[in-house]
Design a protein around this nucleic acid. Structure first.
Lengths: 329, 329
DNA sequence: TCGATTTGCTTAAACGTTTAAGCATTATTT
DNA sequence: AAATAATGCTTAAACGTTTAAGCAAATCGA
């Protein structure tokens, strides 16, 4: 790379001190600097195509204007959409984002967070995997600004932005009940993650006593979903509630392959959606998560906590039902 | 944030100079430092939970171990997959990646690149939009290490990693011809981007003289694709070659909605794929791009150019045909 | 035994900024 | 006319590292 232009070069060319150049270029000490000199400095800066070295700036100011975003799994369209939104929102207020994916592993989460901190990010936005409580308490103790996004730990009070999963799941199941589906199969992960369990709690709560609800808790593999569906179908379940987008994709693949007629033979509803739904032979009813708001809230809350330490705020956003053909009667 | 631990703190506690601490912790000057002192320094570093300030390091060494990745459109699954792979490959060899999306805009590309450079990235991986030649020549002139990925400019020699689009498109159309489809509709963007035009050139070249080929060049909107398909169908086209994954998605949505029987009524082949294909009622034949190799090659080539300036290498990778049901006879 | 080498460490400058403090001028007050 | 204030700039230290150069003491070779 060619020699880069620094304050010193401008100062030398104009014949002033680097301090003055810095003041002028940052618009500080306005009114204490002569118009002419200021103009000369700006002109020379432009002429030399000066661009400040953010590294040096950061070293001095202790601010990098960089955020670390830790996703649970970048391959999940939910994650990549969130990434895109967070990045945009962050850019709007002058932050760059560096992204990492833990692939649902606690160790990898820890490593990535330390990497982010090494790079002196100003704050963190985290979607953590199962069993990451220790990470959260550790960050709190170190007084590092962060906000949990989507995944949360109700027992640890800290900045959190998430969907009200309990309410949303209730809405979903209510919709099935309204459509006279009373034998409902729930498909969820076998996890202790609060957001997923809240969905479950909501679904079960609204059914209380009246309906038959089958529940299958799974690992992350296609075969598990297939086995679950097989068993539900054998038991004449009338509707399936997929409690995540990936579960829905796996399930729909199976239902597609086995020519199950949706919604005649089986109603289907999903929590969260995917572009892939568009190519299914019928439209899928789903719970729409407010991704843009989630991202925007997270960035803004983080920005606040960076500016004034010790903020502790929890934001729950409403998700809404999108009625489509897969639950039609 | 609590006061962070620096070399100075360790030096003070052990009672040596910061220089010595630096040497020990970086494993330099091995053999010139007494085992005992080295051990004490390492112990204290661990005890204080020292973690080096990369910003300071970067300022001194002029290396940030950060790469800038500019994508054409992060919403495109191709981009997000590439992002994931590049990030992984980069991490393997000690780089962090910062990502930006130009949304196909030249201005935004330029802005993001300058942002990356402000942050002193060591190098750039770029998928540029149409009409970005000037950006490329500018970077060359400034001797900034970069590699073009996926999108390339044949007339400007520079580091490039891409698929051999010409050959791949030939394979795709050959497959249609082999399956006795001779009235072929090509759907492509109206663009001057070389990678898309190479696909077109390949498709046309292999048909030479024998077959009827209809071509529609589009903007980026769903309506265009629908109109194109409508017209092709009216003209009894036997097969459609969608020259990008997004075009294929738009097209399949339409074909789905209008109950066109694939492959009986119309054969379909796509360049590049999407997870969404899995939910279509039949499996889609497509050209599979070697994403992992693309990402890995790009990162490695960039790493080489960072280490020794002036490298100029072009890598074209082979894409292969994945035969599925949508082109069956 | 004495000069040369090796060993084990320190000093200090540098990277490119920011910013408090200081110092001449010039302008304003009394 | 002297004291005070405002203006326009500079000096220099600092941020946390790295690293060339230097220096004293211990060890070596003859």
């Amino acid at each position: 790379m060619k020699k880069t232009v620094s304050l010193k070069d401008i100062a030398a060319k104009v014949g002033v001190s680097t301090a003055l150049v810095s003041y002028v270029l940052n618009g500080k000490m306005e009114g204490r600097i002569s118009k002419e000199v200021a103009a000369r400095i700006k002109a020379v800066a432009k002429e030399l195509n000066y661009s400040p070295n953010q590294i040096a700036k950061s070293l001095k100011t202790n601010r990098t204007h960089t955020l670390g975003l830790l996703l649970a799994d970048i391959a999940n369209p939910f994650s990549s959409q969130i990434a895109r939104i967070v990045e945009n929102e962050a850019n709007k207020i002058g932050y760059t984002v560096i992204i990492g994916s833990s692939d649902e592993q606690v160790d990898k989460s820890r490593t990535l967070i330390e990497l982010f901190l090494n790079r002196q990010v100003d704050g963190l936005i985290l979607s953590l995997p199962d069993h990451s409580e220790e990470i959260v308490t550790d960050l709190k103790e170190r007084e590092i600004p962060f906000v949990l996004l989507d995944r949360y730990f109700p027992e640890i009070p800290c900045n959190t932005v998430a969907v009200d999963n309990y309410a949303a799941a209730k809405i979903a199941v209510k919709h099935l009940l309204d459509n006279k589906k009373s034998k409902i199969g729930l498909i969820n992960y076998d996890t202790s993650l609060a957001h997923l369990n809240e969905r479950l709690r909501g679904a079960v709560d609204i059914c209380q006593g009246n309906e038959m609800v089958g529940l299958v808790r799974l690992g992350h593999i296609q075969e598990d979903v297939e086995a679950a569906l097989k068993s539900f179908l054998a038991n004449n379940v009338e509707a399936i509630f997929f409690m995540s987008n990936l579960l829905a994709i796996s399930g729909l693949k199976y239902l597609n392959k086995h020519q199950i007629a949706i919604p005649e033979q089986l109603a289907v509803i999903a929590f969260d959606k995917t572009d892939a739904f568009d190519l299914f032979y019928t439209t899928i009813t789903y719970i729409n998560q407010p991704l843009s708001e989630l991202g925007a809230e997270a960035v803004n809350l983080l920005n606040e906590s960076i500016k004034r330490k010790g903020i502790n705020k929890t934001v729950y956003l409403k998700a809404e039902l999108v009625k489509q053909n897969s639950t039609a009667t």
